[in-house]
Nucleic acid binder design. Structure first.
Lengths: 127, 127
DNA sequence: CGTGATTAGCGAAATGTTTCGCTAATTGTA
DNA sequence: TACAATTAGCGAAACATTTCGCTAATCACG
C-alpha cells in the first residue's frame, strides 16, 4: 500500500497545501493566483511544484476534466499532527507540554476554545 | 543591534542546537561525538556546520581557550517559540488552539504538567 | 478549420543545505 | 625541538528545493 504523506512537505509545498486546504479542489489557475499574489511566482513554477507534489503524493489530481483539478492528498489535521510531532521531537526532546505552553501563550483563544482544552485535559486525567 | 536567531535553523542545524541545549557549552569534539553517533557524520562536517551556524548567529564560540567552546546563541524556548509560531501560521492559519489540541493528544503528560496547563488557562481567562 | 489564448510538461538554471577531502595550525608529549 | 595527534578552516562536491524558459498539447471561438 502506498502511503500518502510519507514525505514531509517542504516550505513552498506547505504553502501550496495551505492554499488547497482553503480553496478545496482547484485548477492550477486558481492555485497560481494565490501563490502569485503571495510571492510573485511564475505560472510554470506553480505547475512544476504541483507535479513534484504529485510525485510525492502530497496532492492528487483529477484529469477527467480539463483544466485538471488538484486536491490535497493530506488533510490539514494529519499534516499538522505530523509536523507537531516532529517539532516536539526535534526541539522539545519529546516534551510536548513545553510546546503546548508556548502555543497557548502565543494564542488569543476564545472562552469556547479554552473550554475545549479543559475538556481534553479532563479526559486525559480521567484515564 | 545584531539580532541573533534571525535565521530559521535548518534540519541539521536544529539537530546541532538540540545537542548544544543538552550538553551546554562544548568543544567540537563533544558535539561531534553526539552528531556522529546519531548519523555517522564526518568530523569535518561538524566543524563546517558550526562555522555556518556561527555566521548565521545560531551559535557563539569562545576562542579564548582551545579547543574552542561553542554554545547555542538561541535558547530552546526562543527557538521553540518561533517554530511554533511558524507552524501555527503555516499550517493552522493562525489557529493556535488546533495545534495545542494535537500536541496534547500526542502527549502523555503527568498530572503536574496537566495542572500547569490548567493554571495557564485560568490566567488567560482571568484576563 | 485556423488562430490566439490557456494549460501542461520537461529540462536545466538558480538557490540553499549538507557533506567531505585536503591542508594548515595548534597541541601534547617523548 | 621534533613528531604524532588533534583541532580549525576552506573550497568544492553532492544533494535537495525552487525557479523559470521553452515547447507541445489543448481549448475557445471567429
Amino acid at each position: 500500500m502506498v502511503t500518502p504523506g510519507q514525505f514531509q512537505p517542504t516550505e513552498v509545498e506547505l504553502q501550496m497545501l495551505r492554499i488547497l486546504w482553503e480553496l478545496g479542489p482547484s485548477p492550477v489557475r486558481e492555485i497560481h493566483l494565490r501563490l502569485n499574489a503571495a510571492k510573485g511566482t511564475n505560472y510554470s513554477t506553480t505547475v512544476k511544484m504541483l507535479s513534484v507534489m504529485l510525485e510525492k503524493q502530497l496532492v492528487r489530481r483529477d484529469e477527467s476534466d480539463s483544466p485538471h483539478v488538484y486536491r490535497a492528498a493530506v488533510t490539514r489535521d494529519s499534516a499538522g499532527k505530523r509536523l507537531v510531532k516532529d517539532l516536539v521531537d526535534k526541539v522539545y526532546d519529546g516534551a510536548a507540554m513545553s510546546l503546548v505552553m508556548h502555543a497557548l501563550k502565543n494564542s488569543k483563544a476564545s472562552p469556547e476554545e479554552v473550554a475545549q482544552v479543559r475538556l481534553l485535559l479532563d479526559q486525559m486525567e480521567g484515564k
